[in-house]
Amino acid sequence: MPRMTMIEAIRSAMDVAMERDPRVVVFGEDAGYFGGVFRCTQGLQKKYGKHRCFDAPISESGIIGTAIGMAAYGLRPCVEIQFADYMFPGYDQLTQEAARIRYRSAGDFTVPMVARMPTGGGIFGGQTHSQSPETLFAHIPGLKTVIPSNPYDAKGLLIAAIEDDDPVIFLEPKRLYNGPFDGHHDRPVTPWKSHELGEVPAGHFTEPLGRAAIRREGRDVTILAYGTMVFVALAAAEETGVDAEVIDLRTLVPLDLETIEESVKKTGRCVVVHEAPKTCGFGAELLALVSERCFYHLEAPATRVAGYDTPYPHAHEWHYFPGPKRVGSALKAVMENV
């Protein structure tokens, strides 16, 4: 099986989707000739022509708004927002329009589109190239929110998202583009080429939206993570010796509640990890669900490790980033609370 980086896997997903379905079009800022600032769309214009892959003006509302119009016509746009931090001018179109067109027209009009966007920190991008806005999408009825953690999932989930009949937000953890970064920023990152999740089928396959993956089985505590935090959680489990079960949520909406519930009931403990700020982060939703579903199985308060409630700082990137040390402390804390 070919080995791919996450960038190559995402590109391959769009390639496969465009090859199979002439309705799939790809556009975004710098996404045409150049192939995107992270090179995810490289070669697609050359292969499929300027009508199916092109550069957009710098207007996120324009990109999302035109994608909605195209989707309403019957195309399947898969658009790129250069950084998740840049999506805000398009937020109105995404949350008030794309998300509700099926509902408000009682299914008369639909918006089968995907908005891809790199998310998260770890690249010294400062406050406008580092944010994790997943909750701002997960909160919106009508949107699906996907966040893969590895090349295999990225490809399978992106094809599924493109084939989905509803608008899907596809968040790409940019710190994972080239390897499974575990939060140890002072160590070299293993490239995806030598990681099992870097093995990706060359052709068409899908990973269904709404299904979590258990990355590590364990008995003592359930870690709920997604995106960049999956490998941080795995590192924390190894380094603390806590026998943690690490669940990679993969999609936030729809959420695989069964897998979460089963695991937490088994371990009796739960730690949620995300990079986004703590207050009203997706962890709040997860802990509420765990409390509702698993309260009588809990042996310690379920807890969160998250970004601080500050803008993402430049110089203090590694103080802000919830690395394996902070996750490890939380694991030890829930284990001591017997």
């Binding site: 400062g126 406050q127 430049h314 110089a315 203090h316």
Partner: peptide, 15 residues
């Protein structure tokens, strides 16, 4: 983004 950075290391260079 050094100790005397007027914006306290919060912003990307040139901001």
């Amino acid at each position: 983004s050094n100790a005397k950075d007027p914006v306290k290391g919060r912003q990307l260079p040139v901001m």
